[in-house]
Design a protein around this nucleic acid. Structure first.
Lengths: 205, 205
DNA sequence: GTCTATATTATGATAGAC
DNA sequence: GTCTATCATAATATAGAC
C-alpha cells in the first residue's frame, strides 16, 4: 500500500495522485470493462477518495479515455522492440512471428486491453481507432515494407500478406487465450509459425 | 409493435413471451454489453413487465447465458451453408473465403455478437468456449479436412493452414469493421482473398 | 402467468469542511 | 488539493393484487 498510515502526512504530489488514479483505473477497467467498473472501486484501488478522482478527471468517460490513450501510447513503444528487420527472409519472418506470438501469449495486460477495446468498440469507436492508428497500422506497415524489400520472395501484394501474417497470429491469441479455446482445440504456436513461414517463403513461383 | 393495445386481450402464449424476452435481450445485450444492459430496458424492449422476465429466467446472468447459447446454436447452422466443398482447390478456397468475408462484413449481428463475446470472455469464459466449440472449431475442422484432401496442394499442416485462412479473414473483419479501422487503413477485401489463395495454392514445392 | 408497486442496494457526481 | 458525507438516480430483484 502506498497510502500513508493514519497520522502520517501524505507527501504524494498531485502528479503522483494522477498516476495512482490511472493505475487504479487500469486495474478496474481492464478487469470489468467500462460499464462494469464503478468510480468507487477505482478510487479504492487507487488509494484516494472519489472526490479526488473527480478533481483530476471530468467524469467516468474522461477517465476512461485518458486511460486508453495512455495504454495505447505505452504499447506503441513496445511493438517488436524496434528490431532492425534485416537479413534472410525465412529467419527474419520466423523470428518476428515467434517473438510477437510469445509476447502476446504471455502478456495478460495486452489480452485484457484487446478484450476491453473490442468490447467497447461500439460505444467508443474513436478509442478503437486510436488502437488501430497507434498499434495495428504501424505493425502492418513495418512488416509490409520488409516483405516488399525482399524481392526474392516475389510477393505480389506485400500489405495484404503482412495482414495475413499479423491476422493469423492475433486471431490465434484471440481464440486460444482470450476466448479460452486452448483446452477445446489445442495447438502449439510453433505449428502456426511453421505453416506461416512455409506459405510465405515457399510460394515464390 | 406486437404488444396489444389498451383494452385488447393479450393472446400471446407463455412460449411467445419467452421468445419476445429473448428478442429484447438480444437487442439490448448486443448493443450495450452485459453490465451496460438493465433488466428494465430488456423488459421494455420485449414489451413485457420486468416481473415476467424474472418469472421465465432466474436472473440477469441466467437470461444472458440463455441468449448466448441460443445465438451460438443459430450461428452454428449458418456457417458457409453446408457447401459441398469439392472441386478445384483454387476456386473452392477462393469461393469459400469470398463468401465468408462477405457474410461477416455485411452481418451487423455477427459483428455485435463477436464484440459481446470477446468483451465478456473474462467474466463468462464458459460462454466464450461455447462459441469456440460450436462455431470456430467446426469451421476450422471443415476447412482443414478439405485442405488435407487436396493432395496436389502438398500442405504439410492442413489444420494450421486452415487457421491461417480463417484467422486472416476474421481479423480483417475485426480491424476494418468492428474496430472501425476501414477509414484509417482502408483495404479491399479482394486483395486479402487474392493474397490468401495465392499463398495457399502456389506454394507447392 | 402477468402486472404494478416497492424494497434495497449501488452508482455517478457534488457540497462543504479542513 | 483532498477528504467525509451526502444527494439523486438507477439498478437488481421481489411481494402481492388480479
Amino acid at each position: 500500500m502506498a497510502r500513508p498510515k493514519v497520522g502520517e502526512i501524505d507527501r504524494s504530489s498531485s502528479a503522483d495522485k494522477v498516476e495512482k488514479i490511472l493505475q487504479g483505473a487500469m486495474q478496474e477497467f481492464l478487469a470489468h470493462g467500462y460499464a462494469g467498473t464503478s468510480m468507487d472501486r477505482v478510487a479504492e484501488a487507487a488509494g484516494v477518495s472519489k472526490a479526488t478522482v473527480y478533481s483530476h478527471f471530468q467524469d467516468k468517460e474522461g477517465l476512461f479515455k485518458a486511460l486508453i490513450e495512455k495504454l495505447a501510447r505505452k504499447r506503441f513503444h513496445s511493438i517488436l522492440g524496434t528490431q532492425p528487420l534485416k537479413g534472410e527472409p525465412y529467419m527474419v519472418l520466423r523470428g518476428l512471428a515467434a517473438t510477437a506470438l510469445d509476447q502476446m501469449v504471455n502478456d495478460q495486460e495486452y489480452q485484457a486491453f484487446e478484450r476491453l477495446l473490442m468490447g467497447e468498440s461500439a460505444r467508443f469507436p474513436e478509442l478503437a481507432q486510436v488502437f488501430i492508428h497507434s498499434i495495428a497500422k504501424p505493425a502492418i506497415e513495418t512488416i509490409s515494407k520488409y516483405i516488399a524489400s525482399c524481392s526474392e520472395l516475389n510477393i505480389p501484394d506485400p500489405e495484404a500478406t503482412a495482414r495475413i501474417l499479423i491476422g493469423s497470429l492475433v486471431h490465434f491469441v484471440i481464440t486460444q487465450e482470450i476466448m479460452h479455446g486452448k483446452d477445446i482445440m489445442p495447438m502449439e504456436g510453433d505449428r502456426l509459425i511453421d505453416a506461416l513461414t512455409h506459405l510465405i517463403v515457399n510460394c515464390a513461383d
